[in-house]
């Protein structure tokens, strides 16, 4: 089994109002070293595939067809091996 970890964020060119609001709040907390905040989604997918490559293909297809909307979002995928019994 493999675990795909998917990060989805708004495309860089798009204003992220949630990130901006969080950034303002962090500034108000005195964390002025914070320069920018982007808020996105983190999705874990357990995939039963024979190889890491195949697992990546499944994750990629999942992102393209449903999980991300490429009109406004970018995504990145990392694949890890994982054993369900060690959960």
């Amino acid at each position: 089994m493999y675990k795909a970890k998917v990060n989805i964020t708004l495309r860089k060119s798009i204003l992220d109002p949630k990130g901006k609001a969080a950034n303002h709040a962090l500034q108000n907390l005195g964390l002025t070293a914070v320069d920018d905040v982007r808020i996105g989604k983190f999705i874990e997918i357990d995939i039963d595939a024979e190889s890491e490559e195949k697992a990546h293909e499944v994750a990629e297809a999942s992102c393209k067809q449903l999980l991300a909307n490429e009109v406004m979002e970018d995504y990145s995928i990392t694949i890890e091996e994982y054993s369900p019994e060690l959960k």
Partner: peptide, 11 residues
């Protein structure tokens, strides 16, 4: 239809 919907600018 083309395009997508974002959260309202002022949330």
């Amino acid at each position: 239809l083309p395009g997508a919907m974002l959260h309202n600018e002022k949330l």
